[in-house]
């Protein structure tokens, strides 16, 4: 029967366990919260305890929530998204996304004008050359994926008629033995690998019929780092580096 007799009152690992349990209160809770923000070692210890203790969570039992909870989740997500989109008028300069599509479509009945990427930062990422669209090009799907924190970016264009995928990639440098891998996630489905992609630059290839069937408006493109085995992987390794929806132009 374990009973550790010598426990330092200020042992931060044990204090992290008390915090993860939720037992701390008053000044002790305040100090632990301060440490959580200021001390990475303490934050990692809290995470360690949360995962270890959390493995008994399922013993709490199953209780069915009301049917109204799920629609409520969607409504709250929609409300939050709407509040993010409705930015109040301000004279302060808003930070421009370094990865905005500035112009996409010329209008109904007109040819697709092409994709123009407005890059606010000095570094310009250009799309791969598109096949000439002399008269009436077929529909295209686009996705723009970026992460401002890491400066990783990927722009994807799928030409539906010619079954071609074109990518422009920035900042996906992987550790030795790893490679960026592209995924398509059908609405409500599991991720399917589209194979390894370059760490930067342009990339263009033909799509198989099965791939083209998955690459439809509403699906999601995502990128992860995977072991560079030369093979497509069955499921992605978290974390997701980039993700974004495919939209029809």
């Amino acid at each position: 029967m374990a009973d550790t007799t010598d426990i330092r009152e200020d042992d931060p690992f044990i204090r992290a366990g008390e915090y993860a349990l939720g037992a701390l209160e008053g000044d002790e809770l305040g100090e632990a919260r301060r440490l959580l923000l200021a001390d990475q070692g303490f934050a990692e210890a809290v995470e360690w305890w949360e995962y270890r203790l959390g493995s008994m969570s399922e013993a709490a039992g199953r209780f069915m929530p009301s049917p109204s909870v799920w629609p409520g989740v969607l409504a709250r997500i929609d409300a939050e998204d709407a509040s993010r989109d409705s930015v109040p008028v301000s004279f302060e300069p808003r930070r421009q996304s370094p990865w905005n599509i500035a112009a996409l479509v010329a209008g109904a009945g007109m040819a697709v004008a092409g994709l123009v990427f407005f890059i606010a930062t000095p570094r310009t990422v250009t799309l791969p050359q598109q096949p000439p669209a002399a008269t009436t090009p077929g529909p295209q799907l686009i996705a723009q994926l970026d992460d401002e924190d890491s400066a990783r970016k990927l722009a994807g264009v799928i030409d539906v008629e010619s079954n071609r995928l074109a990518l422009s990639i920035t900042g996906l440098e992987a550790d030795t033995g790893k490679t960026p891998e592209l995924w398509v996630i059908p609405a409500g489905g599991a991720p399917v690998s589209l194979g390894a992609i370059p760490q930067s630059g342009s990339f263009d290839r033909e799509l198989s019929r099965a791939e083209a069937d998955l690459l439809v408006a509403g699906s999601t493109l995502a990128v992860t780092f995977e072991d560079d085995t030369g093979q497509r992987h069955e499921s992605p390794t978290m974390p997701i580096l980039l993700a974004g929806p495919l939209d029809q132009v």
């Binding site: 997500i77 996630i185 609405a187 409500g188 599991a190 991720p191 493109l221 995502a222 993700a243 974004g244």
Partner: peptide
């Protein structure tokens, strides 16, 4: 895990 991956990619069907 697959559903959580889809959720991370912004897929509401996966969140469901």
């Amino acid at each position: 895990i697959d559903a959580l991956t889809g959720t991370a990619a912004g897929n509401r069907g996966s969140l469901q």
